[in-house]
Design a binder for these strands. Structure first.
Ligand SMILES: [Mn+2]
Ligand SMILES: [Mn+2]
Ligand SMILES: [Mn+2]
Ligand SMILES: [Mn+2]
Lengths: 220, 220
DNA sequence: GTTTATTTTTAGGTATGACTAAAATATATT
DNA sequence: AATATATTTTAGTCATACCTAAAAATAAAC
């Protein structure tokens, strides 16, 4: 069954709310996530149910079917592969991705996806460190770890932050730390938990324990 | 003024029909090109006229305004840059492009376009040998030439054909001649106009005068 | 210059995907 | 258990982008 871009957006939302939860998804939750009104959500739930993508009983919430989960993973795969392309090849930044991948995730051609995957070297994680489903919907474990937990001599790639405040992001910018940067732990100070990093094989940077706890990385 | 994807498709159609013609474009022509009905075209012409993209007088045909031309060239630029990406980077073939570029041409972000252009090495021609407008809408001259007109020792890239019959395309396939192939003219026979080519620096291939007249190339 | 044929427009309708306001249902509170 | 509150659905509307059928305008034939 083929879905419109709007239907894909809703299905993706239902799936993503569902993964970290036992029970069903509520209409209001979905409306908040998708920035629409509850009445619009109800309309769409009927369509998705008719297409066999979700299980929906009036007033009782919603969850994805097996077919819906498969489709949601496919959309997610498309999105994340484009995100890898945008970051790795076009050098776009974290905050420049959302709008573009919201559009590109709906460009669906099996051949294109297969070639893009090959071209990118079959990446297993998106630029945020989240796993990319393969053609069968299978994903690797997420090795995301705060750099505070890295040992001396370990290296990794910056994939995200726990703190999105502009003061923190501004500090990171000043310190030369950005999404995608390669880091190597040169030293850890027992006394205060501070660390010395080597960024992109050239810049040395000291960071406090507080900062290190708020930067996430993928270990190589 | 911002356009919807449908409006962009119509504008592109009006512009492309207009370039190789003095007079105005007719409703029926556009309907045929866009595979819609004349009544739908009329609806859209009103919208595009209101948005200042075209000059439209009832029953009198339509032409693009200065603003419309600028927008049409921008859409064309987006499309052709994506086409270069699909062919050069993802190795898609001629006939696999249309559907994808029809969708990708509407993904419009100045930053994305700028980065894509840079990433592709600021290409001046699309995979078919047609010029790509730059950010200002300016284009290079099209150096498309039948390989029959190449001299011995000249080399170029195959960019199209004059004959789309399946018998011809089948022959080309058998002869190892495809869109994007690099060719070098090894010999030309005065007697019958036949040629010997070197394809991709490895394969030697004889072709008749008739075949050579129907293959288009870009000279390096 | 009428008549005929073709082109183009209008009128009115459908499907999608939004919305507001009101009704229905479910959940909390006392 | 009754009432109040919050959630969800329905009813009805709107814009976009299509469509068919009929009317209007233009172009071609006689
Ligand atoms: Mn989307
Ligand atoms: Mn298009
Ligand atoms: Mn109408
Ligand atoms: Mn309704």
């Amino acid at each position: 069954m083929n879905l419109t871009p709007a239907e894909e957006n809703y299905l993706k939302g239902i799936y993503s709310l569902g993964v970290s939860r036992n029970g069903d998804i509520s209409t209001n939750e979905l409306a908040a996530l998708l920035q629409t009104k509850p009445a619009s959500v109800t309309d769409m739930l009927k369509k998705l149910a008719k297409k066999g993508m979700i299980t929906y009983v009036k007033y009782q919430g919603v969850s994805v079917t097996t077919a819906g989960k498969k489709k949601a993973l496919e959309i997610t795969r498309r999105r994340k592969l484009w995100e890898v392309f945008l970051v790795e090849k076009l050098r776009l930044q974290w905050d420049e991705l959302t709008e573009l991948s919201d559009a590109l995730e709906h460009v669906s051609s099996p051949l294109l996806l297969q070639r893009l995957d090959e071209y990118l070297g079959y990446p297993k994680f998106d630029p945020f460190g989240d796993p990319i489903p393969n053609e069968h919907g299978e994903m690797s474990e997420n090795p995301r770890v705060a750099i505070l937990d890295l040992s001396v001599e370990q290296s990794g790639k910056i994939i995200g932050v726990n703190d999105n405040s502009s003061s923190f992001l501004k500090y990171l910018d000043k310190a030369g730390i950005y999404i995608g940067a390669k880091i190597l732990v040169l030293d850890k100070v027992d006394f205060d938990g501070s660390m010395e990093l080597l960024i992109d094989n050239k810049r040395r940077q000291f960071i406090s324990k507080e900062v290190a706890a708020n930067i996430l990385s993928m270990v190589y």
